[in-house]
């Protein structure tokens, strides 16, 4: 593998039952870059994320994180590896029985022997980073959607990981909040030189944060490249993907109708 790549996926094939999800994925993520995995729904991007996290075993192929094969590690190695990575799930996955502060502290409490005050200060620092200072004592039920996402970000960063994974950071959020999260992701990378993998289907957000974009389609990688390269690509699927979005947003009833009826009904 290349010297400076922290994630190395080779010939990854995964199945759900008989259905093939990924058909030979090869991907490298370099140190300190933000890689955005994009694709429509059903393109296998979430499953790819689950493979990267070691939650779904592939049928064949390998995933190496920090130079270590994820699916050929024993439990102890896996624990070691996972302590160096942070994940923010789509729904936040905060634990409802704990306050925000306790949620953020949890990895520290389980993996370190720091005293409670130090942990509290560290949690506070991470929460300040995501503009949630002062929310430690709230319960997750008292937070808004954007605050939950930000708290999940803080929790994923608490161990100062080398690798960060964000699953759909802007899904279900208003444009302002999602723009704020984009800035936050950029700030995290700049502050800590973390390597970040983001799975999203939001074009704008991807173009804003990505160093490189990987486009998935029907279980294969269409292309991996910088924002400009993706925009300049003449691949039909990619252009479809870039252009289809505004079209589906402004759904034209008349055209759809005439499409169905074969132009027999003229526009009234």
């Amino acid at each position: 593998m290349a010297g400076n790549s922290l994630i190395h996926i080779s010939d990854l094939v995964t199945h759900f039952g008989d259905k093939c999800v990924h058909d030979g994925i090869n991907l490298d993520v370099r140190k300190g870059e933000i890689l955005v995995i994009m694709g429509g729904s059903g393109s296998g991007k979430s499953t790819l994320m689950r493979c990267l996290l070691g939650l779904k075993a592939p049928s064949s192929g390998s995933v190496q994180l920090l130079g270590q094969d994820l699916f050929r590690s024993n439990r102890k190695q896996l624990v070691e590896l996972r302590r160096q990575m942070g994940v923010a799930f789509q729904g936040g996955a905060l634990f409802g029985s704990m306050t925000v502060g306790e949620n953020v502290c949890l990895p520290l409490r389980e993996h370190t022997r720091l005293d409670p005050n130090t942990m509290r200060i560290m949690a506070r620092m991470k929460l300040e980073m995501v503009n949630l200072g002062g929310a430690e004592n709230l319960m997750p039920a008292e937070l808004s959607g954007g605050m939950i996402k930000r708290a999940a970000f803080a929790r994923s960063m608490i161990m100062d990981p080398k690798l960060l994974f964000f699953d759909e950071p802007s899904a279900g959020l208003d444009p302002i909040t999602s723009a704020e999260l984009d800035e936050l992701i950029l700030r995290i990378r700049d502050a800590m030189q973390t390597t970040i993998v983001v799975v999203t289907h939001e074009l704008e957000s991807a173009f804003r944060i990505a160093d490189r974009i990987t486009l998935l389609h029907a279980g294969k990688i269409l292309m991996t490249g910088s924002v400009e390269e993706v925009q300049a690509s003449d691949n039909q699927h990619i252009q479809d993907m870039l252009k289809r979005k505004p079209r589906s947003e402004a759904f034209d009833v008349d055209r759809y109708l005439s499409q169905l009826t074969g132009d027999r009904v003229s526009r009234q």
Binding site: R50, L53, G54, L55, L78, V79, E80, R82, R83, M85, G86, V87, F89, Q90, G91, A93, L94, F95, L106, P107, E110, H111
Partner: peptide
């Protein structure tokens, strides 16, 4: 509910053994 809302996955990813915890 912890399973459906990915909280158990989150535990795994934090290297916290969900069986034990």
């Amino acid at each position: 509910i912890m399973r459906t809302s990915e909280q158990i996955d989150a535990l795994e990813c934090m290297a916290i053994d969900p069986y034990r915890y």
